[in-house]
């Protein structure tokens, strides 16, 4: 497969929501420090797959999971309940619609740092917050109103703030669930640029239903269809030489 190391690997991953069979025997490998796009029609289980990586699915009572997920070679289902936050800390999550926490811009970025008791000195914390806001290109826009409620920002700014909040705890992976679907084209472009920059230091997993976005950004592609992995591989292979008829149809635009 790829020259780089494997960050996330699933083995026979099955997920049920109540009686609904959502993910069927999923076996995938996600390379480290690259951008992997999970593509497929809506309702095919993309988001479910994404949220299984940081055990976020399990906050729902009705979910049943079997199989293994290895992150850095460690099976995440081996860890006990009180270790789950440590697994999650390794992976930032960006949701479809930006959800800033109900606090100030500053506190949003400081949230994870305070929880993990990092940068406890005021000066250190300030510097860290400036750093992460600069990383997402938000610093110049908000430096004079750091203590305003985050909800006053525009949607595009909010999404970049969420990104800053996620990377502030220094995760290894950034999970993005259609991060641009609520944004206008310009804000979406900013996020795409950021993701391309971030993949140098982080493993980025991007769920997207826009094929063009996947083509623009992805190094590696996983095509999901009705909960099954139909095809996976380096982006140029999947896009230029799809093998499975369903993949071919999806890429041609016959199914969406």
């Amino acid at each position: 497969m790829l020259s780089s190391t494997i960050q996330i690997e699933t083995k026979n991953l099955n997920v049920y929501f109540d009686k609904h069979y959502v993910l069927k025997d999923v076996n995938i490998k996600i390379p480290a420090k690259q951008l992997t796009a999970i593509i497929g029609p809506s309702g095919c289980g993309k988001t479910t797959l994404l949220k299984s990586f940081n055990r976020l699915l399990e906050i729902h009572d009705e979910v049943k999971i079997s199989g293994n997920i290895f992150v850095d070679g460690q099976d995440i289902f081996d860890s006990k309940g009180d270790e789950i936050p440590d697994i999650r800390k390794k992976m930032g999550l960006i949701s479809q619609k930006p959800y800033p926490l109900p606090m100030s811009i500053y506190e949003n970025v400081a949230y994870g740092l305070k929880i993990h008791r990092k940068k406890t000195k005021k000066g250190e914390l300030d510097a860290a917050i400036q750093h992460y806001l600069q990383e997402v290109g938000l610093w110049n826009e908000v430096k004079d109103r750091l203590h305003d409620p985050a909800s006053r920002l525009s949607v595009g700014q909010q999404q970049r703030l969420c990104l800053a909040r996620a990377i502030a705890v220094e995760p290894e992976v950034i999970l993005c669930d259609e991060p641009t679907s609520a944004l206008d084209p310009i804000a979406a472009q900013q996020i795409e640029k950021l993701l391309l920059k971030l993949k140098q230091n982080y493993t980025v997993v991007l769920v997207t239903h826009t094929l063009r976005q996947a083509k623009r950004l992805a190094d590696y592609v996983i095509f999901l269809y009705f909960g099954m992995v139909i095809e996976q591989g380096p982006a140029e292979d999947v896009f230029n030489n799809p093998k499975n008829p369903a993949t071919i149809a999806y890429i041609k635009g016959d199914i969406s």
Binding site: K89, G112, R165, A166, V169
Partner: peptide
Amino acid sequence: ALKEASLSVGATKWETVKK
């Protein structure tokens, strides 16, 4: 999604509820 945002930075359930 707001709870998920908090949990995904490694907050415990109680921290999420409280904050």
